[in-house]
Amino acid sequence: MTEKEPMWPDEMDAAERVRHVALTRTEARNAGWIAEEADVSRDTAVKYLNRMVDQGDLKKLETGDGTSYRPDTVTQFLKEVRQLAESHTLDELTQEAQRHRGRNRLVERDVRRRIAPSPAPEHRR
């Protein structure tokens, strides 16, 4: 019997591993899959996943195949906004937003030009 090499840092406990696996998925996954990825038992995964659902970090989906979990996109978005607000000044954020608006206008003009219908050629009789 071969022993599996641990892929997690020693300082990461079971809760941190489950949290990391659950929050870095782009599609819903069941507790068994998350448990295997996090190197914990299914029961341990369910305990931490349900805690994350209660905290608003995950959404719990009941399907014909059972229960799956996926990150709550609103909560993730708000956490990212908070991190930006805490790590940048209002002036920095305003300047960055203005740069993005300018870029978006250029892209929008380019897209409109590319998809705008060409004028129909005039037919001569």
Rank of each mutant, 00 (worst) to 15 (best):
T2R: 12
T2W: 08
E3S: 07
M7C: 09
M7G: 10
W8N: 00
D10E: 13
D10P: 02
D10S: 13
M12F: 15
M12L: 15
A14P: 02
A15T: 05
E16H: 07
E16R: 08
R17F: 04
H20L: 14
L23H: 04
L23C: 07
L23V: 00
R25K: 12
R25I: 09
R25A: 12
R25F: 08
A28S: 14
N30W: 02
N30P: 02
G32D: 09
G32Y: 03
W33P: 02
E36S: 13
E36M: 08
E36G: 08
E37V: 03
E37S: 12
D39F: 02
S41N: 09
S41A: 11
R42D: 13
T44P: 03
T44Y: 05
A45R: 03
K47L: 15
Y48C: 03
Y48Q: 05
Y48V: 00
L49K: 04
M52N: 02
D54W: 05
D54A: 15
Q55Y: 13
Q55W: 11
G56T: 03
D57G: 00
D57A: 12
L58R: 01
K60Q: 15
E62P: 03
G64W: 04
G66E: 11
S68T: 06
Y69P: 02
Y69T: 01
D72Q: 06
D72H: 09
T75Y: 05
T75H: 10
F77Y: 07
L78Y: 07
L78M: 10
E80I: 00
V81K: 12
V81Q: 13
R82I: 09
R82T: 09
R82A: 13
Q83N: 13
L84E: 11
L84W: 05
A85M: 13
A85Q: 14
E86S: 06
E86W: 05
S87T: 12
S87R: 11
H88Y: 13
H88S: 14
H88K: 12
T89R: 08
L90R: 02
E92Q: 15
E96H: 09
E96C: 03
E96I: 03
A97N: 12
R99T: 11
R99A: 15
H100C: 05
G102D: 15
N104P: 03
R105S: 12
R105L: 15
R105E: 15
L106R: 11
V107H: 07
V107M: 15
V107S: 06
V107N: 01
D110F: 12
D110K: 06
D110E: 14
R112D: 14
R113D: 14
I115G: 00
I115C: 05
A120P: 01
P121C: 10
R125T: 10
